[in-house]
Amino acid sequence: MDDKNHPNPLTRRQFLVLSLGAAAAAAVPAHLTGAAPTPMAKAAASAAELESFVQLSALLTGIAAEKLAPAVDPVNIKQVYFDLARKESGDTFQQLLSIFDQNQGKPPDEIAEIILTQSGAAVGNLARTLMLVWYLGSWYAPRDPPQYSNFPSSTVVSPDAYTQGWVWRVAQAHPMGFSPLIFGYWGQTPPPLSDFIVPGDQS
C-alpha cells in the first residue's frame, strides 16, 4: 500500500481473492497460453482500451489514475466497470473511448469539454454514468440529467463496488458499513484530502 493513512488497506478477503487469482492463472496449461495469436492481439487491444478507460476516468472523476487502478489491485474494479460499460452501452462506450484517444494531446479541460458537451447527448450521458459508478458504485442508466430526481433508480454493481466508492474518500471518510479505522478516530481531524485521492510515496 502506498500510505499508512490509506483508508482502504487490503482486507483478508481481498488477499484471498488475489492469491486465488494467481493460483488460477498458474493452473492454465502452457500450451493454451501464447499459442493463439488472435486472442493475444485481442488481449493487447483490450489492455490498451482498459488503460484508456482508466485515464479517461481519472480525467472525469478528478481521482488520480494510480488511485483508481493501483499497481496492486486485488479488487480490480476498473475491469468490472469497463466490462459493465461495454455490456450496457457497447457502441457508445466504444465511441467515448475513441473520442478520448483521438484527443489525447489536448489539455484535459478541452478533452472533458469535447466529451461532456460536444459529442452528443449519448456520449455525455454515458460519461456522467461512468463518473457516478466510480463515485457511488452504482450504475445509473445513462439519460438526460433533468430526468434525475432525488433518488433515481440505480443498481449497486457489487458489494466491492459499493465499498470502493470514491465519494467516501472525497469526504475524507469511509463507506458506511466499511470502516478500516480504529475506535475513537471520529474525534480527530482526518488526514488531508490529498492523502485519499493522490498517490503517496511508495516507500
Partner: peptide, 14 residues
C-alpha cells in the same frame, strides 16, 4: 468534473 468536482463535493460533504 475533475478537480472541481472533487473540491465541490469535499467542501460540502465535510
Amino acid at each position: 468534473y475533475g478537480k472541481d468536482l472533487v473540491n465541490a463535493l469535499n467542501s460540502n460533504l465535510i
